[in-house]
Design a protein around this nucleic acid. Structure first.
Lengths: 118, 118
DNA sequence: TGTCTATGTTGACGGATGTCGATGCAGCGT
DNA sequence: ACGCTGCATCGACATCCGTCAACATAGACA
């Protein structure tokens, strides 16, 4: 009767990354984009910053809340910028402070990379 | 009656990484070990190699099966070594060929990193 | 306006990393 | 023994990356 394809509306949104690694071989383009996100989390300082934001009450944290990671303030700013550029965090200035939060659906998207494939 | 601790036997095995990033702030040591695994997957060539092994029939692949990733053979070998050192792959020589497979429970362990925390 | 605080940017430095050609080594076949 | 194939290692090179001090910028407040 009809195709097996569901309605094209209300798509779960752009999935910028992370096809299951075990499902099939990644193409060069997929690997490029997915690796960029892993690379952003591949530094201990950045991973601690990301974890601090992700686990912070209310889902957001200002820089002053999370900058106690053992490096200088410029370095913290540099790493937060990398996490932003990788699409993992978003930032918003409210008055004196800048608040960071985990970009929507990033956790779920990356979890799918490790889902069983076959 | 008894402590709430379960039997120490039959532990699900060493969990070398990956407490949920959203659950709490990672310690420096946790971040170091977890970031090392993300870092290993943070290169497009390595990610394609990992995906090729993980998605290969039988759960294992010899180097000749997966070395068509656009770089020279020494580079492939170099990246596979990095993946081994990160604990993501294991290798075994059988006759002429060396077979790689995903290290046990690595996929599940890394998936937990992106599990919802609170 | 001026000053203080919070955060981002710049420039520079040293070390890590990805890449390759050349070479080494292990197994297989002749 | 010899050569051939699959894979690892070595040495060298260029580039990337994490880090910091110095400086710049943006709000808040007086």
């Amino acid at each position: 009767m009809s195709t097996t394809k569901a309605l094209p509306l209300l798509e779960p949104e752009v999935a910028p990354c992370c096809p299951p690694l075990s499902e099939r071989r990644l193409t060069a383009e997929e690997a490029e984009r997915t690796a960029a996100m892993f690379k952003a989390l591949g530094d201990p300082v950045r991973l601690r910053l990301f974890s601090a934001v992700a686990s912070h009450e209310g889902g957001e944290a200002c820089v002053c809340d999370i900058s106690d990671v053992g490096v200088s303030q410029p370095t913290v700013s540099h790493h937060l910028k990398k996490l932003r550029e990788a699409g993992l965090l978003t930032s918003e200035r409210r008055g004196t402070w800048v608040y960071y939060r985990v970009a929507p659906s990033v956790l779920a998207a990356m979890a799918t990379a490790f889902a069983p494939g076959s």
